[in-house]
């Protein structure tokens, strides 16, 4: 959409993207292990074809969609976004993706719906982290409907015009650039429209540390570390820290939270 391009373009101004190698060899994808290098080592076992997404809940056209059918005819855009992990490191990623709003319009969101819930695939035999029960799998995430419909919110299918690597959440993942990385759920197999705030994996694991919103916010620390600064990946052993920006440098989303106290609604 027009606003998305404007916002995206403004934010893209002076961003230097990380290399594909950096982006695909330092990942959090706990289904494939907790080490940063584990997903790159283990994710080749993920089976991504055929892939279908179950769309259910408060939609006009529920069903199991083959991935290609769900996306057919929708425009794939280039979005150069900052990516800020809750662990206080960050990257800049040149995504290719489709606005989530376009997909939601296609399936027909009913007026009662207030939230969108997402679910990651579970292939226990291929996923060492699932076998070890690192989290309560399947991984689940959610957005408020207005967040989901925001033009900055995309469903990414590629990076650097290459299909997503498995460790990056192939074949399709969410990207919400103003929220901590764990909100951007990977390898999505289910999208549910609902009128209730859906459970989210890290919130279930530790509600004190991970809220539903999880907007990037330098003024609200994670209980175990500061969120005021971050380290940009790729700077080597003497990489300086840089200040973290409110909403990760996407102030155009601020109106979504008008009237909310973001030190409470974390």
């Amino acid at each position: 959409g027009a606003i998305g391009l404007a916002g995206g373009a403004a934010a893209q101004g002076n961003l230097e993207p990380n290399t594909l190698e950096e982006i695909t060899s330092y990942n959090n994808y706990y289904e494939f292990g907790t080490g940063k290098n584990d997903p790159a080592q283990n994710a080749h076992r993920l089976v991504t074809s055929p892939w279908s997404i179950k769309v259910d809940g408060m939609v006009d056209n529920p069903g199991d969609y083959a991935l290609d059918d769900l996306l057919a005819g929708l425009s794939v855009e280039d979005r150069l976004y900052r990516f800020r992990c809750v662990e206080a490191w960050s990257m800049v990623v040149p995504w290719n993706g489709i606005e989530l709003a376009d997909i939601l319009d296609r399936v027909g969101v009913q007026s009662r719906a207030k939230y969108v819930a997402f679910e990651t695939v579970v292939q226990p035999e291929n996923m060492i982290g699932v076998q070890r029960r690192v989290l309560d799998f399947p991984y689940v995430e959610g957005l408020r409907l207005d967040e989901a419909m925001h033009p900055l919110t995309i469903m990414a299918t590629g990076i650097y015009d290459e299909p997503l690597y498995n460790q990056s959440g192939a074949p399709i993942r969410l990207v919400v650039p103003w929220k901590y990385g764990f909100k951007s759920i990977k390898s999505i197999v289910r999208i549910t429209l609902t009128d209730r705030e859906p459970p989210t994996s890290w919130n279930k694991a530790n509600a004190r540390e991970y809220g539903f919103y999880s907007n990037v916010n330098p003024n609200v620390d994670h209980p175990r570390w500061s969120q005021a600064t971050e380290r940009r990946i790729g700077g080597g052993l003497f990489a300086p820290r840089q200040d973290t920006l409110m909403f990760n440098g996407y102030p155009e989303v601020a109106p979504l939270y008008a009237g909310q106290d973001l030190s409470v609604d974390i």
Binding site: E21, Y26, K36, A239
Partner: peptide
Amino acid sequence: ALNQLGPYLVEPINV
């Protein structure tokens, strides 16, 4: 770590 070899390839400080 200084030369970003092996596990130090991307983010040597934390590693």
